[in-house]
Amino acid sequence: FGKLQVGCHVPFTEEWLPSGHSTIKLSQTHKAKPDLTNLVFGTVFSDHMLTIEWANAGGWQKPHIKPFGNLCHALCCLFEGMKAYRGADDKVRLFRPMLNMNRMAKSAERVCLPAFDRAELVECIRRLVQVDLEWVPQSDSASLYIRPTFLGTERSLGVKKPSHALLYVILSPVGSYFSTGAKPVSLWADSKYIRAWRGGTGDCKMGG
């Protein structure tokens, strides 16, 4: 499939879906698409999700694309935020996905979650977006938000490196993050409440 470059076209086609390395179970029902003029960030989700489980004993398991379902939560958690855009030429593009994968890998190392193949995860995300391609808004002010999340699923309360983990990806069509749209906003810089303390996690995206 080649490497993804900044602003490159991702060849989402029906023939692109290989079946040898993942399991795809399509939803039997399809949710109605939201009104793009009144989207509230992170409240509407597409029909499918990607899940990949990991265990210390067996390593990474086969990726699964399946109908969107309930999500589990854990204390040891990190996430990323990226987008898919539909251009005026109707082609769908991912924006700098490998930079998100690089930061996600750094976050995983920081919180003692297992390493993963960054290029393979990009391919899994591309496959998920292909399945829910119609959820990419046909709009110059909206996009499909992609949320990869990685968490430890250790069934104990002890402070230790997890022996089980779950990596999942969900999709959400979104408009502008700010209600004012793509306009300047006022920001408050606070010198007391910061996340970039010495030895902290300012270079990671942690669930905390």
Rank of each mutant, 00 (worst) to 15 (best):
L157I: 12
L121R: 10
I146C: 03
A142V: 04
F150C: 10
R198V: 05
L151G: 12
W197Y: 14
C112T: 08
S191T: 10
V185D: 05
V111Q: 06
S186N: 02
P162T: 07
Y177S: 08
R127K: 14
V129M: 05
A115Y: 09
P114G: 01
A189E: 07
R147I: 01
I125P: 14
R127H: 08
K192L: 11
G200Q: 14
A119F: 01
D132K: 00
V169G: 04
V136G: 12
R198G: 08
L151Q: 14
G152A: 10
R126V: 13
V185Q: 12
T201D: 14
R110T: 03
P148C: 11
V136Q: 12
T153R: 10
G158W: 10
V111P: 04
L113S: 04
K160Y: 03
A119N: 09
G152E: 08
S143I: 14
G181D: 11
S172L: 04
C124H: 15
F178T: 02
P114D: 05
L187K: 01
Y177D: 14
T149Q: 11
T201A: 14
S176Y: 05
L113V: 02
V111L: 13
A108H: 08
S156K: 05
S172F: 01
V122D: 11
S143Q: 15
D117T: 00
K161F: 02
S172N: 03
A165R: 04
V131L: 06
G175C: 01
